[in-house]
């Protein structure tokens, strides 16, 4: 993965619009957050291989970025994104890595189910 280039990411997001896509969306503080700091309120969510279709999507912000996808009857968004890659299968992998390189959020789009 490399630092996000918003124009390139926008181009890739546009390419998936109005198609059935599989979505991976995840936020995490890590399973050890409360172990390391008892006052820390740990929360996160995870969805893998949600089959959805979006009318349009947009990347916005100034590093870190936000990506929002407008569905016919709803929304998907993620914030804190700063790295991306279009992998060898043409999937869009975006992630938010903290200052130590640890993943905090991921949003990924593919036309085939993720393994």
């Amino acid at each position: 993965m490399k630092p996000i280039e918003p124009t390139d990411v926008q181009r890739v997001i546009d390419g998936f619009a109005n198609k059935d896509i599989y979505l991976h969306l995840e936020t995490t503080n890590g399973a050890y957050a409360t172990h390391n700091n008892e006052d820390f309120f740990s929360a996160g969510a995870y969805i893998r291989n949600a089959l959805v279709r979006y009318q349009h999507g947009k990347i916005i912000g100034d590093n870190p970025y936000r990506i929002g996808l407008k569905l016919d009857i709803g929304w998907i968004y993620a914030e804190g994104l700063n790295h991306y890659e279009v992998d060898e299968q043409g999937r869009l992998l975006t992630a938010g890595l903290d200052s130590t390189g640890k993943l905090a959020v991921a949003l990924q789009i593919s036309t085939k189910p993720f393994e």
Binding site: H24, R91, L93, A95, T100, G101, L103, Q108, F114
Partner: peptide
């Protein structure tokens, strides 16, 4: 760090 892996 820098990342050499992805979620996938």
């Amino acid at each position: 760090n820098p990342p050499f892996a992805t979620r996938e």
